[in-house]
């Protein structure tokens, strides 16, 4: 099969970018989308030009490194898959495919299709952990965790931190990402002692990074490669307001908006 690509090329954050067209010919429908880009890059290299920069690593949908908006959809047309797990059989022969980076104020562009998602790391640094040091843990079976809680925590923990939720949101909100981590840890008995502090600190950092507000359109869930549920946003809101009520007045003032 053959396709025409319109790819966003931008040499750096301070230089203007533009769409550049490329032909990708003789493709096998069982190729992954990134393998198609590999082939296009081989051709570009052979022509003596600089190939398209794009993030990728595991190529099995789990590391969260790949990050393309394909035909206007973060991670492309298929439901619950990352860009790397998108295959050419999902496209029509002769189709024109538009490829862009994840765009958001909090994800500044580095080059071509590559953006900087360090904001996510800083949100985790604010409280996305349980404060336990190696060596201090009791026996793994000392605290039973109801299976339904462990399963729900796992549903939330499945987030790969790719940022598609942000890219898909008209407000570039990170609520799905943040709520997944808050829910994962707050659902478990091990995470309960820091429950309030965690949700307040993570939300505060999320706002500081410049992510937008959530208006519950659900576009995040629709593009999430792991199908993280919108319900976690509801859970985080509940945890957040509960924490505000319980927080000392100083902390309340910090979060008053």
């Amino acid at each position: 099969m053959n396709v025409k690509l319109r790819v966003w090329r931008q040499a750096g954050p301070d230089t203007p970018g533009k769409f550049v067209e490329y032909e990708a010919t003789g493709l096998n429908p069982n190729m992954s989308f990134l393998e198609m880009l590999d082939e296009v890059n081989e051709d570009i290299t052979k022509r003596g030009e600089e190939p398209i920069s794009f993030d990728h690593d595991c190529r099995e949908g789990i590391c969260g490194m790949c990050s393309c908006v394909i035909n206007g959809e973060a991670h492309g047309p298929e439901y619950k898959v990352a860009t790397c797990q998108t295959y050419m059989r999902s496209f029509q022969d002769g189709e024109t495919i538009t490829v862009e980076p994840f765009r958001a104020k909090a994800f500044p562009l580095i080059k071509d299709l590559i953006v900087n998602r360090s904001a996510f790391d800083r949100v985790i640094q604010a409280g996305g952990f349980i404060s336990t040091s190696a060596g201090s843990a009791p026996d793994g079976n000392a605290i039973p965790v109801p299976k339904q809680d462990a399963d729900a925590a796992m549903d939330a923990a499945a987030c790969i931190g790719c940022g598609a939720c942000v890219a898909a949101c008209k407000n570039a909100s990170a609520m799905l990402f943040v709520s997944a981590k808050v829910s994962h840890l707050n659902l478990l008995p091990q995470g309960k002692p820091e429950k309030d502090k965690r949700v307040l600190a993570m939300v505060q950092q999320m706002d500081a990074e410049g992510f937008g507000a959530c208006t519950v359109t659900g576009s995040c869930e629709a593009v999430c490669p792991k199908g993280i549920s919108l319900n976690f946003i509801a859970k985080m809101n509940r945890d957040y307001f509960g924490a505000l009520l319980r927080a000392p007045s100083k902390a309340k003032a910090a979060h008053a908006d």
Partner: peptide, 22 residues
């Protein structure tokens, strides 16, 4: 054995039985 203890304490959601045990 210490690894499992440590990971559980960190909140790693290992598979569990209905009893709540690993």
């Amino acid at each position: 054995a210490n690894i499992i203890d440590q990971c559980v304490a960190q909140g790693v959601p290992f598979a569990r039985e209905y009893s709540g045990y690993l």
